[in-house]
């Protein structure tokens, strides 16, 4: 576990060593606010809550998270630094986890910087702050799931653009798993059990219940397991072929 911390710190520092961190945070905040106020109709609704903010989170993440995660492993492969990292006395899993945690902590920071919205809504009325906290928790879990998928896609290639496109595609499929767009593909030939199983994998269904303030253990477990699964897949992809 000691090495996880070392790797996480190095990764986090590397975000801020380039303009990446600042550009990401700026775009994230601008888009989050634009979605909330213009598309979400924050004022027009006349309700003191952050529902318009959380509703658009998944769509914001769909493009921004793969942009963040695409470099996790593809860049290491491209620059060759993966050979340096993998020949240190570090367990593969420590490296996978360390890099993921750095990206997740960074997303948490970006998400945390939306706090003026929370202040605004408290200034304008008296919202259910418990529900807002649950919304933030759900959003963080969702970001974790997206990041884990992105990490896995990044481990498959040395090309960051490919990693980005794969990341967006897989995240999109998981986002809409509960909707006809995805389910119709399976309905014609797969048994109902499978269709139901796929539907239950939907990010949106699980995210929406949490963001409404309903914290169900099943929803939490879903995100934890999905994240764990894709991190494990990342490790397997790396182990199969380190010298891609």
């Amino acid at each position: 576990m000691h090495n996880v911390g070392i790797i996480t710190r190095r990764e986090l520092a590397s975000y801020f060593a380039t303009p990446l961190a600042y550009v990401f945070i700026l775009i994230f905040l601008v888009l989050a606010n634009a979605f909330t106020f213009y598309l979400g109709g924050f004022y027009e609704r006349g309700q003191a809550d952050l529902a318009p903010f959380f509703t658009f989170q998944p769509w914001l993440y769909l493009f921004l998270i793969p942009a963040l995660s695409m470099k996790l492993w593809a860049e290491e492969r491209k620059s060759g630094s993966i050979e340096l990292l993998m020949t240190q006395p570090v367990k593969l899993w420590d490296a996978v986890l360390g890099k993921f945690l750095a990206a997740w902590a960074f997303t948490a920071l970006a998400l945390g910087l939306t706090f003026p919205l929370w202040i605004t809504v408290n200034y304008l009325g008296s919202p259910d702050n418990g529900a807002i906290l649950a919304g933030y928790l759900g959003s963080l879990l969702l970001a974790g799931g997206f990041l884990a998928i992105g990490s896995c896609m990044s481990a498959l290639t040395r090309n960051q653009v490919v990693a980005f496109i794969l990341g967006v595609a897989v995240c999109f499929a998981f986002l809409l798993a509960g909707f006809p767009l995805v389910l119709d593909v399976f309905r014609s030939w797969a048994p109902q059990v499978l269709v139901d199983a796929i539907a239950s994998l939907s990010f949106l269904t699980h995210f929406e219940s949490i963001s409404k303030g309903v914290i169900d253990v099943r929803d939490l477990l879903y995100f934890v397991m999905l994240t764990g699964f894709f991190l494990l897949a990342t490790a397997v992809a790396l182990d199969l072929r380190k010298d891609l």
């Binding site: 090495n3 070392i6 190095r10 590397s14 620059s79 060759g80 050979e83 020949t87 006395p89 570090v90």
Partner: peptide, 30 residues
């Protein structure tokens, strides 16, 4: 790996790090 010091072909490293930070990072991993 603990018993080994290894210089990969082309001496890859993390370009955005300073020399001091990079060496400290490796020292910590070691």
């Amino acid at each position: 790996k603990t018993a080994l010091g290894y210089l990969p072909e082309g001496a890859p490293s993390y370009g955005e790090m300073t020399v001091r930070r990079f060496l400290e990072f490796i020292a910590d991993l070691r």
